[in-house]
């Protein structure tokens, strides 16, 4: 049944992938003539409606790659295309959920969620009404009037999710969005994300260092090597049935088999990454 659902989608979906990165290399100029190559010749494509997770050791340039997909960073070499069109400037089709605090601290939760619509020309009243609706969807009905500092880390992430999703982007880019949260909250946020995504399947590119989280959430897991000059070294489809519950899917035998298989590849890179960054 799951298979037929996926097949149906592919027939509707346009042929061009939502995100296509071709041989992307990203280098930064350090002091003097030194050049630091963060990512080398990474190719990656995300089909419309597909949930792809990028996993790699700390400091391997996963976020850098995501910034290229967002248009926040131009690659030094290679191509980035969004739905078949080369990306120039910001990726207007994408919503980006950041790892660090990105809410406007001087706006209430409701204003934070509404702002994306307001700047696009929606009337304030209408934007606030829809923001209220979205706050409800992320379980924050009673918190619209609070400022970010009055919310917990998990609640702020919920606001961030609503802030991004209210604009209905075709592509969702997520940079370790649940990184700073505790284990239980991560699980709850993971399930919330899956619920929202199931309701309206967007292409998702989800960066994480947590392999379990990646397998539990995604359709495909992409592994990056340790930096510098990180490459994409593996690509595994995740054939676990949906809808999934993050906590339950982790008890599945197929989950364990896949985890073990991917981990064998990832382990070496993690150790290399540690050696290079001194464990930091």
């Amino acid at each position: 049944m799951q298979e037929s659902g996926a097949a149906l989608r592919t027939t509707i979906a346009p042929a061009a992938p939502a995100v296509a990165l071709g041989d992307v290399t990203i280098a930064f100029r350090l002091g003097g003539n030194a050049v630091y190559t963060a990512v080398e010749q990474a190719s990656l494509s995300v089909a419309d409606g597909e949930f792809v997770a990028i996993v790699g050791p700390t400091g391997c340039g996963k976020s850098t790659l995501l910034n290229v997909a967002a248009g926040l960073l131009a690659p030094s070499a290679g191509t980035a295309a969004i739905f078949g069109h080369p990306l120039a400037g910001l990726n207007r089709q994408a919503g980006y959920l950041f790892q660090a605090e990105a809410l406007f601290p001087w706006k209430t939760a409701r204003e934070n969620v509404a702002i994306g619509l307001e700047v696009a020309g929606t009337s304030r009243a209408e934007a606030q009404r829809r923001a209220e609706d979205w706050l409800g969807r992320v379980g924050l009905n009673a918190f619209g009037g609070r400022y970010p500092h009055m919310l917990s880390g998990g609640q702020r992430k919920r606001v961030g999710l609503a802030q991004v999703l209210i604009r209905d982007p075709k592509i969702l880019l997520m940079d370790e969005p649940f990184g700073p949260l505790d284990a239980q909250t991560r699980q709850i946020m993971g399930n919330l994300l899956l619920d929202l995504w199931t309701a309206d399947r967007k292409a998702v590119l989800f960066v994480t260092h947590d392999l379990e989280e990646a397998i539990a959430l995604s359709d495909r897991v992409v592994i990056m090597s340790a930096g510098p000059a990180a490459r994409i070294i593996g690509d595994w489809p995740v054939r676990l049935p949906r809808p999934r519950d993050i906590a339950e899917v982790k008890l599945d035998a197929a989950f364990h088999a896949l985890h073990r298989e991917i981990w064998n590849t990832l382990k070496e890179e993690v150790l290399k990454g540690y050696a290079q960054t001194g464990g930091g």
Partner: peptide, 22 residues
Amino acid sequence: SPTVLANARMLGMNERQLMRHV
């Protein structure tokens, strides 16, 4: 904060709106 600024851009703000809201 550069993150807040990047977020504002990704939410579709133009220069004038960045000025006003950020």
